[in-house]
Design a protein around this nucleic acid. Structure first.
Length: 966
RNA sequence: GCCCGAGUGGCGGAAUUGGUAGACGCGCUGGAUUCAAAAUCCAGUUCUCGCAAGGGAGUGCGGGUUCGAUUCCCGCCUCGGGUACCA
């Protein structure tokens, strides 16, 4: 402020300079370990967790902090309520992007990851979060992944016992085998053959190891995997979308490779039932339920005519077996080769050739009805008739048993197939009693079905199941869509498996004393051809343990993120992943905030690992995350300019969106994304390019140096603007779309710039004010001035004529009412995670107190405490000026008092037939009868009743009066 | 296709158990201040008819329950997310 300026005296209030205040307090908090939390406390615990970020090279954009702000508000609120709050942050630092970046630039993933983390740390610090940074974890730190490796090894050393319904040591299983073989073992396994103790005792070491591998929770198996040649790695199902890799969009094929897997299917039932016990959104639970995909049905064997082969099928509709007129095997099914007759061999080979040529993508794109007859027949065990065996691509080898009994009358796909190939259709369910019911509803009455005729479907199902078991041809069975998790990656930047193979090729887990097995350093991280990991080229490392060779694959990124929340509880422990005291104190995560993109993979793996650790008695709860909130995405507007597909005189020709629309040229133009920094009125409907923008665009994209830019105002080319009339400026309207904020869309808005201009507190509150935390919305900086104004107004409540002035005068009834209305609203809304309405409540209170010129400590002190979770810096500054000592961070959150909210009188709307016509004030203590009596005698009421009869008067206390007339 | 979720002013959104629809903010309009602008302050702002007083309509569309519906029920439409030949 300059005293020489004539206006200086007009600025009545002390300037609020957010950046100075914020930097001062951030430094103060850091120096004083304000947010450091101890594992020893008399206070009740509360654990608030964010999904830790992958430190990408692009840095944070305005979308990332949304969830962090929400969780920070809640953590601060809980802290002020007297909880010992664990609120940590760390980095999910292994993964493909760092490695891809390394391949492009030659910069080691460890180096770029470290740089990125540094940048993230700075950005997160500037947002004023109350993280206990001393507990920071990084999944790529050997001290951390020592325990990732250890848990993996423990999975290897355990199997899942269905009788005990938990994981048990594999040594227990070996004992059982020695005593009585596997006949009485009920376990999660792919072991089909039974054996007794004698058979076990004569097995070779290799046979025994093979059997055990079929029981272990971490096991190695040759299986079909999603192989992506371009990325040189195996991908999980959820990393493949429509047959191409989610990352990079490369083709993915099925390839047989030995892979390490986790037997997640063993926990299918518990992963499903556990959902009932946790407070997650129904949408998210549904996603997980669908992913687990439980279905009840029967597994059955069909005999094959003139053969000793048996075909095992799975069906959810055993009741329809009398309508099973043919069978279908998946083309990859083992029996195809054996069953195909000589006459059909050529046709079948041709069909198999065709199936091979069809990528997964083709199959998705056009679902053709195709198939071929094997020439063989099966016997329907209930009708004893011969039914033809076909192969068809609509039956998948990976689901159920890879074979079905086809019932064309009651299955949509079987029906189209039967119609196309002229196969018999027998109606077996009469659905006339259930009009509108779909096939999946399983409703109707059995017909043409011998001894179950007349039964309703559910009864028929249990009857057939009973009969199937009596006949010894199958059992009722629950099936899950959930697959075991492929856990091997042929990449460099991940956790090495703690595995060595002896000279006979048997896998052994390294003991804890030999962990961590550190990722060896190399400059050569290119993926090898044909699925060899880069580690396989480091021969010294591979052979560094005498008479052993090391596993050269690495773990996927989900490994480290499956248990990181436990490490925060005791992050520097070298003796255990966390001490039992720490785990027993912190228990589980009370509130988990993160994006819904992790709905399946991360949240499923983490629950699986947690349940395993629970079975081992290492964690006290079955579920890791009690309450989960999915924050929405902050989207960005992507700006495009239209370019004609055909060049004009050999030059690129850009067109105004207005012209494209006017002349309907949408088929003749392509959309070229343009950096949002060059667009005028960015984000608005009328966003456009002026001459300056075009020059910036050309500087960015020199290949368009001589391009033509045409809009209704004229044409710009080679630095010259040729107007149509007398225009001096272009107005080339861009095409705007809302989408993900991404570096590749050139629409990333960096929070640093916003913070520089408005301050962290303002940024935090504005992101909350934008709307409900769970909805996605485009970033729009327009409204931020309202929040900025609010913070200044709040600040100015404490200032009079440049002086900090606060009085100890008794507050009035009105002032107390404003305060407690606000406290009530804020308290209740924080509890239900409605942060946008909290901001609004603060605005209302501030506006009203401003009108009353209230600067009383009794009002402003509690209000400052309540504001602190949202805007911690301004609150701390005002607190220090007001109180002189302590920190607002630990100040007791003020309790609202309903008694201040009680009114002497209440204004009731008077409705006639439900429509508000008048208002009237009644004493708060007036009885219903009194109100009714007075209401009917109100002046002016007659106009609305208009001579009609009053039929009824409804009085809802403190709400409204409704007079019904007719 | 199936399974979730959502549709409210010019815009973001509020209305927590069926009880005054549009809080709060942006934007816009008018006014004050200013040589002028920015900033600030005051007033107005769902649409529509009307100079006004006042009236009518109104929460995606159509129906229903109710004294009363943004809220509950039935049938559609649109958008977003998930999933996909799951036997």
């Amino acid at each position: 402020m300059c005293p020489l300026c004539p206006q200086w005296f007009k600025i009545k209030n002390m300037d609020y300079t957010p950046r100075d205040i914020e930097q001062k307090w951030q430094k103060h908090w850091e120096e004083n370990d304000t947010y450091k939390v101890s594992n020893q406390s008399d206070k009740p615990k509360y654990y608030v967790l964010d999904m830790f970020p992958y430190p990408s090279g692009a840095g944070l954009h305005v979308g990332h902090p949304l969830g962090y702000i929400a969780s920070d508000i809640f953590a601060r609120y809980k802290r002020q309520q007297g909880f010992n709050v664990l609120h940590p942050m760390g980095y999910d630092a292994f993964g493909l992007p760092a490695e891809e970046y390394a391949l492009q630039t030659g910069i080691h993933p460890a180096v770029s990851t470290n740089d990125n983390i540094k940048r993230y740390n700075e950005q997160l610090r500037s947002l004023g979060f109350s993280f206990d940074w001393s507990r920071q974890v990084r999944t790529c730190d050997p001290k951390y992944y020592k325990w990732t490796q250890w848990i993996f090894a423990e999975l290897f050393h355990h199997y899942y016992d269905y009788a005990a319904n938990k994981a048990l040591p594999i040594t227990d299983l070996i004992q059982s085998f020695e005593k009585e073989g596997n006949t009485n073992i009920k376990a999660a396994t792919t072991q089909e053959e039974t054996f007794d103790a004698a058979a076990w005792s004569v097995m070779s070491k290799s046979e025994k190891e093979e059997v055990l591998m079929r029981y272990r929770l971490a096991y190695r198996e040759v299986g079909y995997v999603n192989w992506c040649e371009a990325l040189g790695t195996v991908l999980a199902n959820d990393q493949v979308k429509d047959g191409i890799s989610e990352r990079g969009g490369h083709p993915v094929v099925q390839k047989a490779m030995p892979q390490w897997n986790l037997r997640t299917t063993a926990y299918a039932e518990r992963l499903l039932s556990g959902l009932e016990t946790i407070d997650w959104s129904s949408a998210l639970k549904t996603i997980q339920r669908n992913w687990i995909g439980r279905s009840e049905g029967a597994q059955m064997f069909f005999d094959v005519a003139d053969s000793d082969a048996k075909i095992e099928i799975y069906t959810t509709r055993p009741d329809t077996i009398f309508g099973a007129t043919y069978m279908v095997l998946a083309p990859e099914h083992d029996l195809v080769e054996k069953l195909t007759t000589e006459g059909q061999r050529a046709a079948i080979d041709k069909y198999l050739e065709y199936v091979k040529s069809r990528s997964e993508r083709d199959r998705m794109a056009d679902k053709q009805v195709t198939g071929e007859f094997t020439g063989a027949y099966a016997i329907n065990p209930f009708t004893n008739t011969k039914i033809p065996i076909w192969i068809a691509e609509y039956v998948l080898i990976s689901y159920g048993t890879g074979a079905i009994m086809a019932v064309p009358s009651d299955d949509e796909r079987d029906k189209t197939f039967a119609e196309k190939f002229g196969l018999e259709i027998i109606d077996v369910v009469d659905k006339t009693d259930y009009p509108g019911a779909t096939l999946s509803d399983k409703l109707g009455k059995m017909i043409n079905s011998d001894f179950i005729n007349g039964m309703e479907v559910p009864e028929a199902i249990s009857e057939i199941n009973k009969r199937v078991e009596q006949m010894g041809i199958g059992t009722a069975k629950v099936n899950y869509k959930l697959r075991d998790a492929g856990f091997s990656r042929q990449r460099y930047w991940g956790e090495p498996f703690p595995i060595v193979y002896d000279k006979d090729g048997f896998a052994e887990m390294l003991p804890l004393e030999e962990l961590p097995l550190e990722l060896p350093d190399t400059e050569d991280f290119k993926p090898g051809k044909g699925g060899k990991s880069p580690l396989s080229r480091l021969e010294n490392w591979v052979n560094s343990k005498p008479s052993y060779t090391r596993e050269t694959d690495t773990m996927p990124a989900v490994a480290g993120s499956s248990w990181y929340f436990l490490r925060y509880m005791d992050p520097h422990n070298d003796e255990a992943f966390a001490s039992q005291e720490a785990v027993n104190y912190w228990q589980d995560v009370d509130l988990y905030v993160g994006g819904s993109e992790h709905a399946v993979a991360h949240l499923m793996y983490a629950r699986f690992w947690h349940k395993f650790l629970y079975d081992k008695g290492l964690v006290p709860t079955q579920e890791p995350f009690k309450k989960l909130i999915n924050q929405g995405m902050i989207q960005g507007v992507i700006e495009f300019i239209y370019m004609k597909k055909e060049k004009t005189n050999g030059q690129a020709h850009f067109l105004c969106a207005g012209l494209v629309k006017r002349d309907d040229l949408f088929n003749e133009v392509a959309k070229i994304p343009i950096h949002i920094d060059y667009v005028q009125d960015y984000g608005s409907e009328k966003s456009y390019l002026n001459i300056k923008s075009i020059k910036q665009f050309i500087a960015w994209r020199p290949e368009y140096e001589n391009a033509i830019f045409e809009c209704s105002k004229g044409i710009y080319q080679n630095g010259i603007f040729t107007p149509n009339k007398d225009a001096t400026e272009t107005n080339l309207v861009t095409h705007s779309e809302v989408g993900k904020m991404s570096k590749s869309k050139y629409n990333v808005v960096n929070p640093d710039l916003v913070i520089d201009q408005y301050g962290t507190d303002c940024f935090r509150m504005y992101e909350m004010f934008l709307g409900p935390i769970e909805t996605s919305k485009p970033w729009d900086v327009q409204g931020i001035s309202g929040v900025s104004k609010f913070l200044r107004n709040f600040w100015n409540l404490f200032y009079q004529n440049e002086n900090f002035t606060i009085t100890d005068a008794e507050p009035t009834k009105d002032e107390l009412k404003i305060l407690h209305t606000c406290l009530k609203k804020v308290t209740e809304d924080i509890e239900r995670f409605s942060f946008n309405t909290c901001v609004s409540a603060f605005m209302v209170a501030t506006n009203e107190l401003k009108k009353l010129k209230c600067n009383k400590r009794a009002i402003l002190k509690p209000l400052t405490i309540a504001l602190a979770p949202f805007a911690p810096h301004i609150s701390e500054e005002l607190w220090s000026k007001m109180e002189g000592e302590g920190s607002v961070v630990m100040a007791q959150f003020p309790q609202f008092d309903e008694s201040y909210l009680v009114e002497d009188s209440v204004i009731y709307p008077i409705c006639i037939n439900g429509k508000k016509r008048m208002e009237a004030s009644f004493s708060a203590t007036a009885s219903k009868d009194d109100i009714e009596k007075i209401a009917l005698e109100l002046d002016g009421l007659e106009k609305w009743i208009g001579g009609k009869t009053v039929r009824k008067v409804i009085v809802v206390p403190k709400r409204m009066v409704n007079i019904v007339v007719a």
